[in-house]
């Protein structure tokens, strides 16, 4: 029984070594991608490798080496939390990158957000009083007064609506600058 266990140990050690080297190479891959890719979005693609797959390989190596049953749930928890939190930060960084135009539009094969931004910008241009009229029935008389003020009041209301819908205003600004 002992030689067989020794063989199993050798196999586990070899698998652990392979996992460790591969996990370290994931970090190197991400760095090469960071240094060589042209814009923020493709760099984000490269940066995900050590955070998910590399961490998985290294945690599996720890679990293989330790051989204690209580280690595995902790490792699984660490990996699951990494899976839950990495998309959050990637979403926020990608959103900010799209807003501030840190991307090369000619490199994108599909830009689904562009149609949405253009449509919301067109909606806001077409009916500036649309969001204000949805404020509620209780404020309708005052709203009519404001709307009856004419061009100046309409402009002020449109400005207020633009400030309320900060996201849409931002999208419109980006679109306008992109076209200009």
């Amino acid at each position: 029984m002992t030689p067989e266990a020794g063989g199993v140990d050798a196999v586990i050690d070899a698998v652990t070594a392979v996992f460790l080297v591969l996990g370290a190479l994931m970090s190197l891959t991400a760095t090469i991608g960071l240094l060589r890719f042209p814009d923020l979005m493709s760099r984000m693609h490269a940066a995900t490798k050590p955070q998910v797959l590399g961490l998985f390989l290294l945690l599996a190596a720890i679990g293989l080496q330790m051989r204690q049953w209580w280690v595995w749930p902790v490792l699984v928890v660490a990996w699951i939390f990494q899976l839950l939190t990495v998309p959050v930060s990637a979403h926020m960084v990608g959103r900010a990158g799209y807003r501030t135009k840190h991307l090369h539009p000619e490199l994108l094969s599909v830009d689904e957000l562009e149609a949405v931004v253009r449509r919301s910008a067109a909606e806001q241009e077409g009916s500036g009083t649309g969001p204000a009229s949805a404020a509620g029935p209780a404020e309708d008389p005052e709203l009519d007064d404001v709307l009856g003020l004419g061009e100046a009041g309409d402009g002020a209301l449109r400005g207020a609506a633009g400030q309320n819908l900060d996201d849409r205003g931002d999208g419109r600004g980006d679109q306008g600058e992109g076209k200009g």
Partner: peptide, 18 residues
């Protein structure tokens, strides 16, 4: 840009964890 630096610091954090 600032976002590139944030992304690279995320990768650096991942390397420390590795």
């Amino acid at each position: 840009s600032l976002l590139d630096r944030v992304l690279a610091s995320d990768v650096l954090l991942g390397i420390v964890g590795a």
